[in-house]
Amino acid sequence: MSKREGLEGIELLGPLGAFLGPILFIAENIADQAEEALLDEKPIVHELTRLGADLDAGRIEENDFYEREAELLERLEWITQQKEARLR
């Protein structure tokens, strides 16, 4: 038996998961576009989840976690920028 409380401030999947999650309310009706727009981001969220799990199980150190998380967020940022550029 083993359990580890969330390390303070380590979990981004609240705001980030939602950032990629279901969209419940929209001022303008763009729900379909928004759903489609999430396809490319999902593998990165998958990787971020795996990274969090590796940290939970002690397979990586906290420093490595932050480093790899930053890389994944940069990829996410890059994808977002590409998409925004395409919309212009």
């Binding site: 409380e5 969330g6 998961g17 999650g21 928004a34």
Partner: peptide
């Protein structure tokens, strides 16, 4: 090993996307 994170704001269930 189970990790509980939270309590969080209900981001997953109530977050809004707004476009102007």
């Amino acid at each position: 090993v189970v990790r509980i994170t939270g309590p969080l704001a209900p981001f997953t269930f109530s977050e809004m996307t707004i476009r102007w």
